[in-house]
Amino acid sequence: MQGSTVDTSESSKVMVTAESQAHGHDDHEEHPDFRIFGMILFLIAEGMIFLGLFAAYLTFRSVNAIPADQIPERELLLPGINTILLVASSFLIHPAEDAIKENDVKAVRKWFGLAAVLGVIFIFGQGYEYSQLTFGLRDSLFASTFYILTGFHGLHVMLGLGAIFSVLWRSRKPGHYTSESHFGIAAAELYWHFVDVVWIVLFLLLYIL
């Protein structure tokens, strides 16, 4: 009985509390939903990829690997419109979470649908801009960095659109999302905001700076 002969003296700090008693073991798998918290941690990691790429771009510029005269002129109108579209879609998607707290799935579908429309226009706008550019992926260090950054971000926009469409698809079934359980809605919205914030930084760095 190794445990009991010695432990009694030392285990005065090992105690069963009322709270832990009340916390029965039937509630396995029913702990509060931490998925949004986990997703925030994951978005920190995602953000760091972008931060790393931004830092690489700034270093390329600051150590003169990209001389200033080698940066081609870029049209500001189209990316400017795109920026407005993306920011607007972020505002449009935001009311959805309040709506689902009222169990108003119809409103959720409306706001998500509007955001998705703007997101799709953004992707097409980006594609159109690519077709109009005078430089290709391998033309210069600036060109490569430009395409990598905008392309990688575009990929994230598409992932975000995928999340939005999957919410739209699933919400056809009544009761799939409720005021209590709507991780999909919250996650898609959070991701969309993330994609939006990354774009603003990217726009400032690539087009304005």
Partner: peptide
């Protein structure tokens, strides 16, 4: 892990573009 590993991923993405596509990062 959350803060630093993604930056390595970024570097490796650029490196693979240099290797496969022929960019010159």
């Amino acid at each position: 892990v959350l803060i630093s590993t993604p930056v390595l991923a970024g570097a490796l993405i650029l490196l693979s573009f240099d290797l496969v596509v022929g960019t010159n990062f």
